[in-house]
């Protein structure tokens, strides 16, 4: 009988430590499936961040190296310049990429570094206990915006993908959500396209994935998935934000 579904080859047999309903485990699965399908496992290097996914190397069965908080893009740059044959990706949360690592991601994108960023946006600092992130929505309650994010005091949700899209070094950016089967399929295509962009040497590629964080949002997993679809996507519209690869729409 033909096997139609199984564990991706490069996802280790380690139970995930992520909370029920969290998007990280789905995203890990998507990336490892694509690595397997593209047969690039021997030359992939992953750079996980400080954050909930700090232990991503417990799950990814490819070479990985920790980065300081926010510095993933700089670490990936140094690595790729030293060893251009590698396929290098960073895995970063919204605090990591859009707050402390803003300078690094902008300049890495602007130099057109041939690396791929996987940007997991859950609108909150997960690991440290649910503080406000740059991507937190207006009126959204967090432990450091207990009365809801007030844009007059805390500014507006930061749209990094739209910000860096005009930079000439950027080849491909797409925003997806991992909260529906269709969204997961689209995400997988985008991940593949991002890796292909890198391998073809076209420049910087980024996939922003809207991802639920039920525990810190104080919702059930189902509610959090609905919140992504119904609320978050209004602030962060899904789709291709930039495609300068000359290869058409990935989605």
């Amino acid at each position: 009988m033909k096997k139609v579904f199984g564990r991706p080859r490069f996802l280790k047999k380690t139970p995930f430590h992520y909370c029920a309903g969290c998007g990280h485990s789905i995203i890990h699965r998507i990336i490892t499936e694509v690595i397997e399908e593209m047969e690039i496992q021997e030359r992939v290097i992953g750079i996980p961040p400080a954050g909930c996914s700090v232990f991503a190397y417990y799950y990814f069965d490819v070479d990985m190296a920790e980065s300081a908080h926010g510095r993933g893009a700089a670490v990936a740059t140094g690595y790729k310049r030293a060893y251009p044959e590698a396929v290098v990706f960073t895995y970063q949360g919204d605090g990591d990429l859009a707050a402390i690592g803003t300078a690094e991601v902008i300049h890495t994108a602007n130099r057109g570094e041939n690396i791929t960023g996987f940007f997991v946006n859950n609108a909150v600092y997960g690991m440290t206990g649910g503080q406000m992130a740059p991507t937190t929505l207006c009126d959204q309650t967090t432990t450091t915006s207990p009365f809801g994010r007030d844009p007059r005091m805390e500014g507006y949700p930061l749209k990094i993908s739209e910000m860096i899209a005009p930079l000439n070094g950027v080849a491909y950016i797409e925003r997806t959500a991992v909260t529906t089967p269709a969204g997961i399929r689209k995400t997988k295509k985008a991940v593949r396209k991002a890796f292909e962009t890198q391998i073809r040497g076209l420049g910087f590629s980024l996939v922003e994935m809207l991802s639920p964080c039920p525990v810190n949002w104080k919702m059930s997993p189902l509610e959090s998935w609905q919140w992504v679809e119904q609320v978050m996507t209004k602030e962060y519209p899904l789709g291709v934000i930039k495609d300068a690869t000359g290869a058409g729409n990935a989605g």
Binding site: S67, R71, A74, Y79, E104, H107
Partner: peptide
């Protein structure tokens, strides 16, 4: 060889970390 004028000293030392991971003298 690789040379980058980084966006900050912070980025520069982290690029060194990346290049050292890859086994080069950085």
């Amino acid at each position: 060889c690789a040379f980058i004028q980084a966006e900050s000293e912070v980025a520069a030392i982290n690029m060194v970390y990346g290049a050292s991971l890859a086994g080069t003298r950085a």
